[in-house]
């Protein structure tokens, strides 16, 4: 059996390869920019819808709504700006790392997390890109294991070229080839 060369070594816990000691590659700058743009556009739309509602001449607004609409606009605008700034910080914190046998993905600002996915346990790989992503040449790499769709391992915002490379790395990996 192939596993033989591994099976009987005694390994000290300290000498195991450490997930936390990896160098994480940040996501592409384009991803951060595109994300920021999307968020700003979204909040711009929200605020402008509220403005249109306020200025429109067609029907009178209920009193309560008319009274609080300016505050609501201000709050939406502020929240939009804040969440966009937070989004930039969060996006800059995201990163991935690849080792011989597994992928890791790091994310979070206040709640930080590192997800690791052994290549041996991968069931299938998907490249996803929406219309905006496609325009900017970005792609999401989604990796499914038997843990179910709740636990999909995903690396967003990869340059398309890179994403394809990673996918073929997974598909041609010896761990996967052996499984079939």
């Amino acid at each position: 059996m192939l596993a033989d060369k591994f099976s009987n070594q005694s390994i000290k816990p300290d000498s195991l390869a450490k997930v936390s000691a990896q160098q994480f590659t940040p996501l592409s700058r384009a991803y951060v920019k595109v994300n920021l743009m999307c968020r700003l556009v979204f909040w711009l739309i929200v605020v402008s819808v509220l403005l249109v509602l306020y200025w429109q001449p067609w029907f009178p607004l209920p009193k309560m709504v008319a009274l609080y609409l300016p505050q609501l606009q201000l709050a939406a605008g502020l929240f939009g700006l804040l969440s966009s700034t937070y989004g930039v910080i969060a996006d800059k914190n995201k990163g991935y790392a690849i080792r011989q046998h597994d992928f890791s993905y790091r994310s979070g600002v206040i709640f930080k997390s590192v997800v690791s996915q052994p290549i041996l346990r991968i069931q299938h790989v998907e490249l996803k890109h929406g219309p905006v992503d496609r325009h900017f040449g970005l792609a999401n790499l989604e990796i499914y294991s038997a843990g179910g769709s709740m636990h999909t391992f995903a690396i967003p915002g990869l340059p398309e070229e890179k994403a394809r490379e990673l996918r073929s790395y997974v598909l041609t990996h010896s761990d996967i080839a052996e499984n079939d």
Binding site: S20, F111, K112, S113, V114, S145, A146, H151
Partner: peptide
């Protein structure tokens, strides 16, 4: 039999 691991930390 582990499929995936996740380490998370709040502030």
């Amino acid at each position: 039999k582990v499929q995936q691991t996740k380490l998370s930390q709040s502030w």
